[in-house]
Design a binder for these strands. Structure first.
Lengths: 207, 207
DNA sequence: CTATGTGAATTTATTCACAGCA
DNA sequence: TGCTGTGAATAAATTCACATAG
């Protein structure tokens, strides 16, 4: 492998591969070929191999990939090899669902704190996480929590992000349907549920 | 404008533009320039103009875009000009949040039906939608509902998708963390919350 | 003989620079 | 003059084809 910039799309796919590998391990497989992995995930085998090749390749020619090892390598690349803790801000409908969601664990992610401004919610516990007053967001700094999930109403999203950045957060998963502006060193990924649904009708020819 | 295939990425951005335009209209603006729209959404002005140019261009040189008209045009392209009804399958934590979410309306989308297999949930109402027995999925055909949201546990996702396809559904928003296989005529968009969060640490250099 | 790894070819998407119209 | 619209240039990503290693 020669020096390459890693394509962003490759990074986007790594968690997909990881998911497939963890499933495969669950099913007791020790080895998997790019073909089988690709099929399971709905992508192309050569895409899989190309993606891995950016990191030097993890397989054995003629054989395939060793499932556990590959999963471990990907976790390392994604910096998921040590458990990462995240804070949730906004424990409404969506926030509560996120807090109750069990799918983070497989990636070594843990929702370790939750915040809200609603006094009725503060103090309650969901999934062993006590909901704290959102005015205490600065405590994230000394708690060394650098990831956050924003699930507040749209009009509060930007100032929530500002507080999070001030508290040292460096990665934000944003569920609010708006663009949020942050310093370059902070990475934001926005999920807009309605927008994704809104894109479906385009692909459905007149009916 | 010459004949072009519309890039998929352009389609992906159209709902983003629409969101910006609706916000702009809300704030009382009648016109907007590609520069202002782009800034508001966190994209480049030339990207905005290029995207619109695939459809022939909607603006007036030297002036900008007429907000209402542009929003209407985009809705038409996305086939959101007439209200589209969607069914939700799986009314657990995430499903309930989706059902309670108010953000669909702005795109002319409506969650018009909800299904679950849990007898405790069947019959309950959330947001005026009565939860029906998931064995009644076939009724979607005569109700002319062609969009669906899957929010069931991972291991039920594929067979839920199969039932939906059988019921005539042609667009699926899948919240289950797995690939689901469908006929080519059906479009699936998968949102995997954990996966998106899992991608953040990569962008955060050692700390 | 099998399945990986990777340069090269191709396709797709972004960015630029400026012509064209109000 | 100002901002759109768009070919052309550039960059990025995907696909291919096959050499290579086990």
């Amino acid at each position: 492998m020669r020096y390459h910039r890693i394509p962003d799309e490759t990074i986007r796919r790594l968690p997909v591969y990881l998911r497939g590998l963890l499933s495969s391990a669950e099913q007791g497989h020790e080895r998997i070929s790019s073909k089988d992995l690709a099929e399971f995930l709905g992508v192309n085998p050569w895409q899989v191999r190309k993606d891995f090749s950016y990191f030097g390749g993890f397989g054995t020619r003629g054989v395939g990939y060793e499932v556990d090892n590959l999963a471990r390598q990907i976790k390392k690349i994604l910096r998921l090899d040590i458990v990462k803790r995240a804070a949730l801000v906004g424990v409404g409908n969506l926030g509560s669902a996120v807090l109750a969601y069990s799918g983070f664990r497989m990636y070594g992610l843990e929702i370790a704190a939750a915040f809200d401004i609603n006094p009725k919610r503060i103090g309650r516990k969901i999934n062993d996480v006590r909901i704290e007053d959102a005015s205490k967001l600065q405590t994230l700094k000394r708690r060394k929590i650098e990831l956050a999930i924003i699930a507040v109403p749209r009009d509060d999203a930007q100032k929530t992000a500002d507080s999070l950045v001030k508290a040292g957060v460096r990665g934000i998963l944003n569920f609010s349907p708006c663009y949020i502006s942050v310093p370059k060193k902070v990475k934001v990924i926005t999920i807009d549920i309605a927008m994704d649904l809104a894109r479906l009708p385009y692909y459905i020819p007149a009916g």
